[in-house]
Design a protein around this nucleic acid. Sequence first.
RNA 1: GCCCGCUUGGCGGAAUUGGUAGACGCAACGGACUUAAAAUCCGUUGUCCGAAAGGACGUGCCGGUUCGAGUCCGGCAGCGGGCACCA
Length: 873
Amino acid sequence: MTGRNMAGETGQEDGAERRQERYNVKETEARWQAVWEDRNSFAATADAARPKYYVLEMFPYPSGRIHMGHVRNYTMGDVVARYKRAQGYNVLHPMGWDAFGMPAENAAMEQNSHPGTWTYANIDTMRGQLKMMGLSLDWSREIATCHPEYYRHEQKMFLDFLREGLLYRRKSWVNWDPVDNTVLANEQVIDGLGWRSGAKVERRELDQWFFRITDFSDELLAALEELERWPSKVRIMQENWIGRSTGARIEFSLSGPAGSDRLEVFTTRPDTIFGASFLAVSAHHPLAGALAEQDGALKDFIAECDRVGTSEEAIETAEKMGYRTPWVARHPFRDGETLPVYVANFVLMEYGTGAIFGCPAHDQRDLDFARKYDLPVRPVVIPPDADAAGFEVGDEAYTGPGRLANSDFLDGLEVEAAKAETIARLEAKGEGEARTTYRLRDWGVSRQRYWGCPIPVIHCDDCGLVPVPEKDLPVTLPDDVTFDQPGNPLARHPTWKHVDCPECGKPARRETDTLDTFVESSWYQARFCSPRSDAPVDRAAVDYWLPVDQYIGGIEHAILHLLYARFFTRAMERCGYLSVKEPFAGLFTQGMVCHETYRTETGAWVTPAEIEKAESGDWRHVASGAPITVGRSEKMSKSKKNVVDPEDIIATYGADTARWFMLSDSPPDRDLEWTEAGIAGAWRFVNRLWRLGGSEMAAAGTPVPDALPDAALALRQQVHRAIDGVTDNLEKFHFNRAVARIYELVNALVDFRETGDAARAVRREALEAVIRLVGPMMPHLAEEMWRRLGHESLLVETPWPEADPALLVEDTVTVAVQVRGKLRATIELPRDTDQKTAEAAALAEPNVQAALEGKTVNRIIFVPNRIVNVVHG
RNA sequence: GCCCGCUUGGCGGAAUUGGUAGACGCAACGGACUUAAAAUCCGUUGUCCGAAAGGACGUGCCGGUUCGAGUCCGGCAGCGGGCACCA
């Protein structure tokens, strides 16, 4: 059979046995999924004799149906899992459900149902959808975090952590909706208003549980250095989040109303002390609280500060406001000078001491504040190129390096030396000291909600806080709850919270708060190692499988989830559950899946499926005929309705097509633009491969001879270069480039028109290589083609192909010839040609000679196998 | 506001450590096959000038380093992620 026949397969008068049947996606994909399941192809068993590889994608929240972000995430993980399996690793690739969370309660409120019913129904739907994708998952390890068999272990560890001093209770602020009488998540506060009631949000102080993550600040910071297979951007973000900063604690003495005569501030710029023009304390500082009790105006001011809610973004972007207190502070070094003391909305109680000194010339926030309240702006750090007498600060604070001026004993010192000197003088006077502070705050885990893990603690009037005895675990959620009113159903449940105190036996109350859902996702990677263990983890299993070799998920989790999981792993290690301190050795953060957005004239969002192109070329709404405005591409989201349902795509084109499209074109760490044309292109390639496979069956068993004609040898080299390139690209997570290399090989295979036994053997070898390379990405089609080539064994059990190094070397190279850096010619040279020969060949090029006409050659830059650059005068 | 990214043809993107910008895919256009359409196959395709050979310009914007910059440095703009109770 000739190459031409091969290309024009459909409708070819080629005999019935050769006639290409259509690729039946649905039947084929379902059949191979059943085969893999029957053979338990993806069940993982710990085996000390084999190298392990644990690949994990961030498990989904069961929101209803899978979305394209899931498809992208799980396709990438599956490519890694299948590739590593082919390389001989013992691969663990599990899946589960991050099943507690707010949306289930919201759904329960809207549909008058139970969050558990909604959640488990969603899990069933989404499990079915994931199975359609043909993911090589070990489903026997499936877990759902809302199941008592999961959260009872979390409760056990809560008790361990409590015993170890890793947990404590203190007052902390929440967003409070005064109309619905309920706590609001930051997400539920929109422009300072409650999302349902529309009421102005207040802050309220509640007793809450905290994990002592700050005990690990230094460890978590230092260990970032060793996470070499994490993106540096994530490490930098975590570093900044932990925010270690060195500075000074300074104690100011106050004069004013009785009761408070000292105020401690923290500053990272003790060198600027002579530029200080005010002190400011947080609205929640005890000083402010005490004064507010007698000062109604201050009380109002604090209430006003609390209206913005608790999110840092809201606090930082709010207009800077201050309230001048009757206190003044004595300057520590300038006798007789006093500084006014303000209560200010931009000072955070959680950072440092909750009080600052303001140096407007060298801090932007302080400057804005000083301009507003007409406070002095005194420059004390003079930029290297400026003159001390003439240097002034306008709208922009100067935060760069320089020498101190107007600063008494600091004059002339550089910033760092001035910091040290200030601290030394403060220490000598006993009015301050060097201090290291972290931005990181302890992790508050109390939630005033139902659908979460109950906190296993009992409140007794006599005994205080009493941990639930381990024998009484799990503390399960009651099923008979209603969501017909806002607030936590656990708190108003008639019986659930009433228990006898385990210590004294008197009537007592259960803790009705539940845990933050980030707690569940902080240790699920460990649970997957032994998902049915009676203990939280089985030591042998976690010692074998952990850490996760490759973790894959969205960049939006760069800080919170990943930092909490790192902390929790350390806490588990301290309690003797684990030997590792870091959960994820390798991390890859994928981009989002985006799509154009569509709106009607009234501004209502509509889905891509609801619109069509009119004859005029404009888009219109199918149901109403209304014109549609096309907006820019954004992350697919339910709220903007710019979503494409993966199940529809799989039903139309199959899982392989969807997977292939997810991997093509866009680099995996960048956003992917979903387009109809893109998925259609992937579908064409599926069919192109299929036709290519159907024509090769006759060649089975023919060995490739040693001596090959040029064209056949060239194809063979191309095969091995593709194997080398695809392997390298998969290792580096460059799936889009791996796809391009496969396209190149397939193009070469289609263009290969030679006939004869040798050609046929090489062609078959090339086709087998294509199938094996494509296997991790399009597993169903690859398995089907593999079988059709006559293989008895499964492709999933076939080792990864290896490139023959002898076939990778190129004999000739194309060298660029430049004149003064501009390309003038390219020359073909034997590989590793010496400089003299290369220069001669370059200078002989007519185009080069023309460019050098009348010029003197000054020098020639030579980069072997790459470039000859002729530099003239 | 603060922290972290990203920006290359009509579009998605490719380009080892600074060394031929535009691989591969999509779209578009021209052609073959077909009664026709679809599918498939062949070809062209950064912009401008030119019949061609070739030339000039070109990687968000401004500037710098270098024989040579998409890549390094300084500044700016736009877009996106996160900001501790969305997950």
